[in-house]
């Protein structure tokens, strides 16, 4: 089993007609993802490489029965796109777009929670989600992931998500689902959402978690692991040596006043029984040891 998405998931691409949307939508379809529709208010009735385009998400859902959407809309339009997806009947929204204002994110996170509690948003500013061999939504290169199991991956960083998939593939370890939650201040899906889903998934036997400096998401995840996760976890937190007060690319990756440091996060994770590696390779090796002992 996979979490959130699998071979039966039908996906709509909001922004399929754009450069990024058509490119990654095409790659996702090639991978085997059920890419069933795109949306564009003025291009209804056209198609992108055979995938029909509808005027709105509601119409696309009506016509195709899609339950997931992937957003490749430029940042200024993401707030409206997320709400259009939720109101149109989508249950799993993946927002790839980076550079979305934090106030928009805080607003639609709370709006969804209130008016559409059954909708799960992933992102914005994330690489997406892949259930290897079944479904790939977003910008992850599908062939760096080995299908099967027993490992579930959740990561806050894009390239380190790929790194994690690749480390496991090199060791011939399969992955049930890999979720890139993104590094923005208000991620739609949290570490805890993914940990809970992996814990409930019988095919996932172990979990790899890639964190990053800034915020307190890793500390909250550690607390959750301690109390609710029975499966073994390996982890890596990027930014051990990042100087305080410097913003390192991601909106999320900033250390202020000694809070949110990698050391504090690693300590919290170790305290929760997580095997913590000092670099991505070490975290992969730790996971290989865990898998060998399963």
């Amino acid at each position: 089993m996979a979490i959130f998405v699998d071979e039966n998931t039908k996906v709509i691409y909001q922004g399929l007609t754009g450069r990024q949307g058509s490119y990654y939508g095409g790659l996702n379809a090639e991978y085997g993802t059920q890419v069933v529709a795109g949306t564009h208010p003025k291009k209804a009735g056209t198609d992108v490489n055979g995938v029909p385009v509808y005027a709105s998400v509601a119409e696309a859902v009506e016509a195709t029965g899609a339950t997931a959407s992937c957003i490749f809309i430029p940042a200024p339009g993401v707030k409206d796109a997320v709400m259009e997806a939720a109101e149109g009947g989508i249950k799993f929204i993946v927002a790839i777009t980076e550079g979305v204002p934090a106030h928009d994110e805080a607003w639609f996170f709370n709006k969804l929670k209130r008016d559409h509690p059954d909708v799960q948003l992933l992102g914005p500013n994330c690489p997406g989600i892949i259930s290897p061999g079944k479904c790939n939504i977003g910008i992850t290169a599908g062939h760096i992931a080995k299908p099967g199991g027993p490992v579930g991956i959740v990561s806050r960083s894009g390239t380190l998500t790929y790194q994690a998939l690749y480390e496991l593939q090199q060791k011939d370890i399969g992955v049930t689902t890999c979720v890139g939650i993104g590094g923005d201040p208000v991620p739609g899906t949290s570490f805890i959402d993914c940990l809970a889903a992996f814990e409930a998934d019988p095919e996932t036997k172990a979990i790899m978690m890639i964190g990053e400096i800034g915020g307190s998401a890793e500390e909250e995840a550690a607390e959750y692991i301690k109390n609710h996760v029975t499966k073994p976890v390996s982890s890596y937190v990027a930014g051990v040596t990042a100087p305080p007060g410097k913003k390192m690319g991601h909106a999320g990756a900033i250390v202020s006043g000694g809070k949110g440091t990698a050391d504090a996060k690693m300590e919290a994770l170790r305290d929760a029984g997580v095997k913590v590696g000092l670099n991505p390779t070490e975290a992969g090796e730790l996971m290989a040891e865990i898998v060998a002992g399963l």
Binding site: A238, G239, A262
Partner: peptide
């Protein structure tokens, strides 16, 4: 020089290590 903020941060970590 690295691609991706996470990998770039990770690179700093490894150099320091």
């Amino acid at each position: 020089i690295a691609n991706g903020a996470g990998l770039a941060m990770s690179t700093l970590d490894v150099i320091n290590q």
